[in-house]
Amino acid sequence: MKNRLSGFFINIIILTLGFLSLLSPFVFPQARNSSATFPIIVSLMIGLCLLIVFYEIQISILDSKIIAFLGVLIAINAGLRFLENAVPGPAGFSPTFFLIILTGYYFGGRIGFLMGAMTMLVSGLITGGIGPWLPGQMITAGWVGQTSSLLRFLNSKFNWREKPAEIITLAIFSAFWGMLYGAIMNLWFWPFIGTAPNQSWSQSAGLMKNIQQYTAYYLATSLIWDITRSVGNVLMISILARTVLTVFMRFQRRFNFRYEQGIKP
């Protein structure tokens, strides 16, 4: 109980600080005066947040069973990115999110977070995509997995488990995250590309204008990609989710055992 409570508090702190760092061009208009250093510092902050969440997960649940399980699942998910070539899809379509959502949904928030964050890390390592954008991707994908455990709570409350409503809520959730992921990833990059320094910021007017500019930038650059991602997510969930959940259920029943501590020599 104490374990879960402390985990909950840590996650709240990290969520606030992480969002605050990402949203800082809105919250602190001054951030845009140092636009070049801005994304790097945000990445460093988010990297620290990630380390804390990882540490919390590591000391609370990670043992050899979960390490093996997650390692294999992450390898599958990183491989899904390459399967895109096997089955042609439209631009922006990414098949990785559905497995992250389902893992977080079935196995809980902590495993979901690890699944999301480490999928990004491993596919970054494989494709040579290590860079300052990685912490943002990792924490956002982690949040995708973490928040999907809330859905499990909702579904068991209304007794929707193993009914069509379960798949429908999952599909809506995945469509929502498909859009939100693009918006958050753009936030990281935006102050870098669309600003000028030395603008006299009247802070009250700044926020509205900021939001207007961001909306224009978002509509111009990434809306189409995000829509295809959302549609792809919904398709994948509606076709694959039921079967994958059944596989997970069987697997959990088999895997749900504990090693007893032997007598110490």
Partner: peptide, 29 residues
């Protein structure tokens, strides 16, 4: 990739282990 994986600090060795397993299983999957 090996050098990059080694850069994960030792305090996070379970995480590094997971990364290593994922990287090892990737080709066979």
């Amino acid at each position: 990739v090996k050098q990059l994986t080694r850069l994960i600090p030792r305090a996070f060795h379970p995480i590094a282990m997971t990364v290593t397993i994922a990287l090892t299983f990737f080709p066979s999957i």
